[in-house]
Amino acid sequence: MNAKLAAGGAILIALTVVALFPSLVAPFPRDYSDTLRYIDTPAGREWRYAPEAPSEHYPWGTDKYGYDMLTRLAWGLRWTLASVAFTAFLRTVLGGGIGVMRALLRFGERHDRGFTPLAGIPSFVMVFFVIFPVTINSPLNSAGLFLYQCLAMTVFNLGGPIAAMSAKAALVLRSSFVEAAVSAGAGKRWILARHLMPYLAEEFWELFAEQTVDVLKMVGRLGIFFLFIGGTTRSYDPPILTSTKGEVAGLIGLYRARLMSSRWLLAYPLTVYMTVLIGFRLFASGLRERERRNRRSIGA
């Protein structure tokens, strides 16, 4: 195992532990909030109002509704990790599978796609259109909404995984041992099971790792536009939009307007988000490196 893979794996394991057992790091119960409190000092009683800056009592501060940021982020992390891992898994299995089949069925064909104006609409915008009607004050339960959002993030991003796996599979199909198998009468099913998949197993892992980084970016972009994984809660009086589950990337979008004041509200979600990103990135990079070494060792 190389250093990047080890470091990425260690970060992801630590984050997963926090996501599974948030009470380990969260200093307060999940829905605890305190907008007004007092502390007794030698100078007398001091009143503290939300949002509170980071202090001994609230290590990462509170938002303006008195929610402790560390508690909120610890509980929200599971939604970030789950959405990233599940969507990346779906993209890898569906996109990768279709890519391999495409390469297998169109063996030898050239595909030059050229310019297309449709590329002018980014995939996260398409996902935005699809999830917008059901994300704000969603009537779906948490699991249903989560599934719907993950499916939307998968369907509109299958192009990349399909193209990547198709290209990699085509490369293997062009190799001499596959040609020899074909000339010896091997059918497509045989080639897929005995020649393609053993070579592509590692590629699927790498594709999964790359997709995690990509999904994390998409979740963050949607959060900028107030569409959060797990739902957006809208209250009418006062009119507020907030992240229902406190998903980490969503909190960045939610608190980005706090740039001029209460900067900890933006700084801590950004830090956690970047830690998640670095973890996935190192993991992906480590897998790539391992694959390169493996190829070198078998002379491929």
């Binding site: 994390l216 970016k217 963050g220 972009r221 900028i224 960045i252 979008g253 980005r256 740039l259 900067r263 933006l266 700084a267 950004l270 988000y273 970047m274 990103l277």
Partner: peptide
């Protein structure tokens, strides 16, 4: 690094 993170870091 995602674009929105870069934008926010620059603003910060």
């Amino acid at each position: 690094m995602p674009d929105f993170v870069l934008a926010l870091l620059l603003q910060l």
